[in-house]
Design a binder for these strands. Structure first.
Length: 270
DNA sequence: CGCCAGGGGAGCT
DNA sequence: AGCTCCCCTGGC
């Protein structure tokens, strides 16, 4: 069990920020997360966060996963004080972190996300994991399912994934899995590339377009200059940035600002 | 039953 | 860059 007081960190905000589909609220202050083959429960009371895991696992995995070594205060400080909208958005979502998630998981998750809502995306991924992920067990006896690797999905027929509720996105996932297994798409190599190079590689995957590629770059590769534009962001840009979002001002970390805006649009209503 | 929207994408021009 | 068409579920 690890206790930490962390500035600009909110499990609740991260959970509903829409970048992770395997994090859920368990109790009033408690959350569970599954990432790769790992399971974590965490709680937040006041300014203190409790991670229910061994120190070794916290240090070697979760600390990096939650991006705890990054100074988000510095990002918040950069915001144009005259930009009332962004100031409000960032205040509302100041506890958001850009998680460092697994590349394959993000490819599949955001392939599934297209023309889909968050509740259903979560269900699709849960179905996928329960059906094809390896079953794991934590000490308390609690069972969970790891995310299925490309090998586990490459041999499937499209119809099999339709049973997981993926609908027409099934073929995207199966084809992506085959591309990885065949070596046509090399995940380890993509991880070493710059943002434009990685994005170009990801765009080669059937079913991956601009928006999905940017989500993968931001949430898996931590290319914080990626600025995914979906319908909500598009709406916000139309309403608040008629002359375009000031990407120059936030060069290199527009993606952080995107998350504040996305969170604000989705949860603070309009 | 029909209609439509939900964090798009492919394939055109 | 902008357009059309495609695609699957769930809610109304």
């Amino acid at each position: 069990m690890i206790r930490r007081t962390i500035e600009h960190f909110s499990l609740e905000q991260i959970c509903v920020s829409g970048q992770c589909f395997r994090m859920e609220q368990k109790g009033e202050h408690t959350y569970s997360v599954i990432a790769k083959d790992k399971y974590l429960e965490a709680a937040q009371c006041g300014g203190e966060t409790i991670f229910y895991c061994e120190e070794e696992e916290f240090e070697s995995f979760w600390k990096n996963y939650f991006d705890l070594d990054t100074d988000y205060h510095a990002y918040l400080e950069c915001i144009d004080p005259r930009d009332n909208y962004l100031i409000k958005a960032a205040e509302a979502g100041s506890g958001i972190r850009i998680l460092r998630q697994d590349l394959w998981e993000m490819i599949v998750s955001f392939l599934i996300s297209q023309q889909n809502n968050i509740v259903r995306i979560r269900r699709c991924i849960q179905n996928l994991c329960e059906e094809y992920g390896e079953e794991k067990e934590v000490e308390g006896g609690k069972r969970y399912y790891a995310f299925p690797g490309p090998e586990a999905l490459a041999g499937l027929h499209e119809e099999a994934l339709k049973a997981c509720n993926l609908g027409y996105r099934s073929k995207y996932v199966v084809r992506a899995a085959r591309a990885v297994v065949s070596g046509e798409i090399q995940l380890r190599e993509i991880e070493t590339l710059s943002y434009p190079e990685a994005k170009a590689e990801l765009l080669k995957i059937f079913g991956v377009g601009e928006k999905v590629a940017d989500c993968i770059c931001l949430f898996a590769l931590h290319h914080t200059e990626a600025f995914p534009v979906d319908t909500h962001i598009n709406q916000a840009l139309k309403n608040h940035y008629k002359r375009g979002f000031p990407k120059r001002r936030y060069r290199g970390f527009q993606g952080i600002m995107q998350q504040y805006i996305f969170y604000y649009e989705l949860h603070m209503g309009k």
